[in-house]
């Protein structure tokens, strides 16, 4: 036993001779607390970007130390903004790639853009210019973008209330393309202000929408505008499935999934939801659907969009655009 004790002591002495470390933990303090310097100027790799054909624009810059930075790209015509940000010593393809998407609506158009680089703690800003030759294309099934007015296959119903304005508009507020739908009015006897039914037959296929059968791979997206200083609107989407393939949605035997959005913000906002996350509602409360209770996006026969508001509140208003199904959450 004493030999074991001595063996352990010997082993310990050997271990005690720890090798000198040739590195250090964390980022260099010397760099972190030194004065800021730009080692490579802020630049963009393309004067003109063709996002529509899959091109990206890559910003680059190199600093003498890790900094918190943000790049704000502004469309000169649309005033759309894209913001990239990070903490690093270098901006390159790994953290400074712009795919043509938008952070603050409206979405970019084919237009000239200016990109400004802001660095935390540095008063100077750095600017480069570029131009969009063609805008980013979002792959998916567009249900409505209102660019061509109301589709004749859609069914539209608008209450005859006061100050009703349930029309397609063209103005500078449009987030995508040139047109959007305004939904406004006072209906003091009912929650419903207006609705549109989008039947699957309006989209060229059969009686159901041409979507993936996997509800985890189907996202429903739309852009909604909350009007400042106006009563809340509620936008309710009803996804009605034709599960037995008889060509019609039957409320007693088929599933209906409901996605209710209370518009309690101001300005445009992207709303995205995975189809498998949408539940059935009855008067706003979760309920069991009447069909097989399986989300079947490829069996959606009709989508109803209801514009609602509390009748006791009075006038309500919101705007909507770009209803689109995508395989992943929309990056507009």
């Amino acid at each position: 036993m004493k030999k074991i004790f001595l063996l352990i002591i010997t082993f310990a002495v050997v271990l005690g001779c720890r090798k000198e470390e040739s590195t250090y933990d964390g980022i260099s303090i010397n760099e972190l607390y030194s004065d800021f310097m730009m080692l490579q100027n802020f630049s963009i790799d393309k004067d003109t970007v063709n996002f529509g054909s899959g091109e990206n624009a890559v910003f680059s810059a190199v600093f003498n130390k890790p900094v918190n930075w943000s790049i704000e790209v502004t469309g000169q015509l649309s005033k759309a903004k894209k913001i990239l940000s990070g903490q690093s010593k270098r901006i390159d393809a790994s953290n400074g790639t712009w795919d043509g998407s938008t952070t603050i609506f409206p979405m970019f158009k084919a237009e000239a853009c200016v990109a400004q680089l802001f660095i935390e703690g540095v008063s100077d800003t750095f600017v480069v210019a570029t131009a969009i030759k063609s805008i980013k294309v979002n792959s998916g099934l567009v249900i409505a973008d209102f660019e061509n007015g109301f589709n004749s296959a859609w069914t539209r119903y608008v209450q005859s209330g006061a100050n009703m304005d349930w029309n397609i508009k063209t103005d500078s507020l449009c987030p995508q393309g040139a047109k959007y739908l305004k939904m406004a009015g006072t209906v003091n006897w009912d929650y419903l202000i207006g609705l549109i039914d989008f039947p699957a037959t309006a989209y060229g296929g059969g009686n159901t929408l041409p979507l993936s059968p996997n509800p985890d791979n189907v996202y429903f997206n739309c852009l909604i505008y909350g009007v400042p200083n106006t009563n809340e609107s509620i936008v309710l989407f009803q996804f009605k499935e034709d599960e037995n393939g008889d060509g019609v949605y039957n409320a007693n035997t088929d599933d209906q999934y409901d996605y209710q959005i209370t518009v309690n913000w101001e300005g445009w906002k992207l709303v995205s939801v995975k189809y498998s996350d949408i539940i059935s509602l009855n008067n706003g409360q979760p309920t069991t659907p009447n069909g097989n209770s399986i989300h079947n996006p490829d069996k959606i026969a009709k989508i109803s969009m209801l514009d609602l508001a509390n009748p006791s509140n009075g006038f309500a208003s919101c705007k909507i655009d770009y209803l689109i199904f995508t395989p992943t959450p929309l990056v507009p």
Partner: peptide, 8 residues
């Protein structure tokens, strides 16, 4: 220390 923190 055995290894530096942010410096050698």
């Amino acid at each position: 220390e055995i290894r530096g923190q942010g410096t050698y």
